[in-house]
Design a protein around this nucleic acid. Structure first.
Lengths: 400, 400
DNA sequence: CTGAAAGCGCTTACAG
DNA sequence: CTGAAAGCGCTTACAG
């Protein structure tokens, strides 16, 4: 039976069927690519042509309801200000396309921090699985549990641990250890690592990315000398003593900054470095959490006439585009995003196929160190006048 | 009649109704917040409690189908590598939440450049309206028409024009004119503007953001002296002559770079500047398309021992975070993203309410110039040794 | 104040 | 090879 156009004006399967003089079922089969052998070539072509002419698109809601599934996997992310996060999301999307699933992108930064609302929405959309990329603190264990209770499997990609969901991520430990090793090997004796702090929280409960970086740094420091953990204020008050001891050994200091300062877009590393650079003396090197923060240190250095790496070596993490300019040449580490995403996808698909299957709780892939000029690890640095806090330099990079 | 849990395991309205000993309709009304006055307080509370206990979420597909609408507006964007784009998307999302619509975020960068597939998906999801943020060349007039033909209104936000869809954007003309004016007023005589080229395309058909920037630059140049448009190779071959004429007037040159080079993440401005800085002589100032490219010029300058602004002034656009560090201090312009997004939203809602209503084709909001140190517009520059291409500098910023 | 019924647009198992 | 029928999970207009 023919029908008038529906209120939203979108053509329906019925309209295509009427025009083609076949039943709706036939159209559904032909357009869905199922049982195409059952129909005459001429029928098939007629139906396809009419669907095209009408600009017919199946109604996703109706398909979902009838087939009992959404065919949808959600990629939940938290903005994409960091290049590595952007690449992760894109890679996940690309891999997902090959699986035949459609995907829903959910940017938590667009949701006014209302995690509950987002979760309700994901369940409402009946997504069949969820990949959470670079999870942030606002997304807590209970939120994951809400999803799992709704029968939706969750895999965490490249971020922190959460109870009851497997995590596939990079392991920064070895890369940071290698970079720190190189710094000591190049003759640096007093090295700072700048990290966000979590006052009160026992070290064992710190986020994974924090522990990895600190552990890597710590290992290299202990191999060459001594490692110490300091709060920012402790650091500034004890700094002259560390400098005085520089000659007598190798020292690595992890400095914890105020977590709130660090999380806000408030240039925590720039501020610490500015204070340090203007009162001096300088450390030999600074190990930063990522390239973004390394750039803050470089900017502070430029402002205070401190040349990288002549006066001070710097390392980052994540291989951001900004670090590739020779003027900055940030020594960094690159994650194997392709492998990480592929493994995350594999775990999710496996769980979708068999919800009971045993599954790894955590899979970590090592990162690859990229040596550039900022760490001066390639060409050992010249002897330098030490402990001159305000020494000027040319601002010109040594040719590589 | 009671039912077994459905295959996907999600609780249904029926289950809530059964447990509450009421009909499905009652549950629908109560949970939907409609006609709450019709039911006893006790019924309402019982139903709500049971829904919560079951973790019931309505099936979006079923709601869509029954109500005949999706209540969904899509925000289509193209990655968010640029901070201004990120802010635009977030602002749109925030404003959308106030309207009662849900939204669907579609990142075109996740779609392997397959615009047709994305459009099919948007129609399939029966979105009721679409906001396209920072539209790129791959999304063409015909794509917009496909959406309009499906009865879905489209509003373009902060990007380029497309036939048949209104555009709400910023107008860079005045801001670029102001920045260029300031450069001339500070004593600069030979100024370059670096832009992506569109070889063959008549100037009138260039993208809006191109025309605005070039027009603004042109106006300031014409007021102070002469303006010329050059292709990159023409520029390099004629450069010595321009330098020779510097003393005799004020000159503005817009240099068109290879569009493909410019679009790819291949540091076009960095490469041009490196070539220019290594062969010299220097211009007095360079006007860049945005802060991102201004940073490329600064990086090239640092590499070649050219200090900003002592040896060369630079301006950008879009007020990116990187430009706020005193070491870079990029003079820039900031869009009124809040106003732009609010107006775009207004247009879309108006069209949704009345598809026939007459509507502005284009609404442009001026940008606000932010003077920083890179343009040396605040403190007139010192007299400088001209035409010394490899002159070294301290790399240290003048204190502001 | 409450409930029975119709139906949105599809897909699939089944009958012919 | 093709079609009639059932039904997914909701909402709404309507009857009581």
């Amino acid at each position: 039976m023919s029908k008038p156009p529906n209120p939203t004006g979108h053509p329906t399967l019925q309209m295509v069927a009427d025009l083609a003089k076949v039943s709706r079922e036939t159209v559904s089969h032909i357009l869905g690519g199922k049982r195409t052998d059952r129909y005459r070539e001429s029928t098939r072509r007629r139906v396809e042509q009419i669907a095209r002419d009408l600009n017919y698109r199946p109604h996703r809601g109706a398909q979902m309801m009838k087939s009992g599934r959404s065919n949808l996997i959600a990629i939940v992310h938290f903005g994409a200000g960091i290049e590595a996060a952007r690449k992760t999301n894109q890679t996940l999307a690309r891999l997902l396309q090959k699986t035949g699933y459609d995907y829903l992108a959910v940017d938590m930064n667009w949701h006014d921090g209302n995690v509950d609302r987002t979760i309700a929405e994901l369940i409402r959309s009946r997504v069949e699985g969820i990949l959470i990329s670079h999870i942030q603190a606002t997304f807590e264990d209970e939120h994951i549990d809400d999803l799992l209770r709704a029968g939706i499997p969750v895999v965490l990609v490249n971020g922190e641990r959460r109870c009851n969901a497997p995590l596939v991520s990079n392991n920064a430990t070895d890369a940071v250890e290698t970079m720190t090793d190189q710094l000591f090997a190049s003759g640096n004796r007093l090295i700072l690592q700048l990290m966000e702090g979590f006052s009160g929280l026992p070290t064992s409960q710190r986020p994974l990315s924090w522990s990895q970086r600190v552990t890597g740094f710590q290992r290299a420091c202990r191999r060459h000398g001594t490692w110490t953990l300091l709060q920012e204020e402790e650091f500034f008050s004890s700094w002259p003593r560390w400098v005085a001891e520089r000659g007598s050994g190798h020292w690595g200091l992890t400095v914890e900054q105020d977590a709130k300062l660090y999380a806000a877009v408030d240039k925590p590393v720039y501020h610490l470095c500015s204070r340090l650079f203007s009162q001096g003396p300088l450390p030999d090197a600074i190990v930063c959490r990522n390239d973004f923060y390394a750039m803050e240190a470089i900017a502070a250095g430029l402002e205070h006439g401190i040349a990288i790496p002549q006066d001070l070596a710097i390392t980052g993490y994540d291989n951001d585009r900004i670090g590739t300019f020779p003027a900055f040449g940030i020594t960094t580490a690159e994650q194997d995003i392709e492998k990480i995403c592929a493994e995350a996808m594999r775990l999710l698909l496996q769980r979708l196929k068999d919800p009971q299957a045993p599954m790894a709780k955590e899979v970590l892939f090592p990162s690859h160190v990229i040596l550039r000029t900022s760490s001066a690890a390639e060409a050992a640095r010249n002897t330098r006048p030490t402990d001159n806090p305000r020494q000027k330099s040319t601002g010109k990079q040594k040719p590589v």
